[in-house]
Design a protein around this nucleic acid. Structure first.
Lengths: 206, 206
DNA sequence: CACTGTGAATTCCTTCACAGCG
DNA sequence: CGCTGTGAAGGAATTCACAGTG
């Protein structure tokens, strides 16, 4: 294996893509995928992929490629996706409902374990097989092994909610509200604002 | 103004953030914001912001900062968000419905002009004040000045749909399906897969 | 022989330090 | 004096070129 060097942030960001590529291209098969095949699928360069994977070990076979199921399993281990990761979903509005029923979380091993909302009209109702609970009881998740949360609530409430989540032991948050969350350094935030992502598109239109 | 240098991709990606910061921090006011204030809010470094903005012109006043409304207007011009941008939304499922009613698009000047779906049960119904149209009639948007689309449909249908959109004159696509779209070079794609973005979180949990 | 793994070269982006100006 | 604008320095990530190997 490559002698230790700091692993680039960008490499980490690409790892889930590799996992998806192995899952999608590899079928359920026993086969191999070369860095070129992966690169064609993911629109990256072959050396990029080889370097990225080599940070974590020598997964490939020279002259052949990467063994599909073994490499996928290695990536899951690296990303800690080899064990099912429980997440709580905050917000049972339209976006929350969409997320609750999105099947895409499964291939990464994510499992939405509970849904919270603060609207009395919603509490007690079911979406995607889960009963919506009162946000006021969020602290209760402390007992379970839940370290991830998905925030699908309006911006105003997001910070307060994030504070509660951190109190409750959450260590990673997927934030879908358009605001920056202040959290302790040990907590990792990934923020996505769909409108803002879209904001660059017109620039590129000639 | 800085003599011409290629504008970094990353700078473009940050421009919508600046626009949001000016909109949020600036109020409706006539005031100024310094690179430090912006940096504190956006969690960036002041020189980063000054350099980014300086690629496009000398917007600031030395000793004072950036005039809120003027600079915001300049950024809108740069990103071509100064004119309302029409977009079509493809997919009236749960995610599509959430997007149709998401107010966040407004501050960037995006305007969802039409919604399409291919499920007969949905066609003709209304969401967010718009009647859901048959995807088969997508080509009709050619006549209007619609250059943007939001794809909120399952992966299998995404490529076919993208082809139709390109045919219909669309030049920018916000793709929410977990697959890479093959489009002509002139068409810009921004892809977001919520599950994949979340895929890095467990890695950071110690 | 084909493809991986990797030091070295390159390119790209960020940060610094300070000149310039209101 | 305070804050912008920017060349230069520094750092990070990508790409290259090829040695190494099943």
């Amino acid at each position: 294996m490559m002698k230790y060097r700091r692993i680039p942030e960008e490499t980490i960001r690409r790892m889930p893509r590799y996992l998806r590529a192995f899952s999608t291209l590899g079928g359920h098969g026993r086969g191999f995928l070369s860095s070129r095949q992966l690169a064609d699928y993911l629109h990256l360069n072959p050396p990029q992929i080889r370097k990225d994977l080599s940070y974590f070990g020598d997964f490939g076979t020279r002259g052949v490629g990467y063994p599909v199921s073994q490499t996928a399993e290695q990536i899951r281990k690296i990303l800690k996706l080899d064990v099912s990761q429980k997440a709580v979903l905050i917000g049972a509005g339209r976006l929350g409902t969409a997320i609750a029923s999105y099947p895409g979380f499964a291939i990464f091993g994510f499992n939405i374990a509970a849904i919270f909302d603060n609207a009395p009209a919603k509490i007690g109702k079911k979406i995607a097989g889960l009963t919506i609970q009162d946000t006021a009881r969020l602290a209760a998740i402390r007992s379970g092994d839940v370290h991830l949360a998905i925030l699908a609530i309006p911006g105003e409430a997001a910070q307060t909610c994030a504070d509660t989540l951190v109190q409750a032991g959450v260590r990673g948050i997927l934030n879908l509200s358009p605001c920056w969350l202040r959290v302790p350094k040990r907590v990792k935030i990934v923020s996505i604002d769909l409108a803002m992502e879209m904001g660059t598109l017109p620039y590129y239109i000639k």
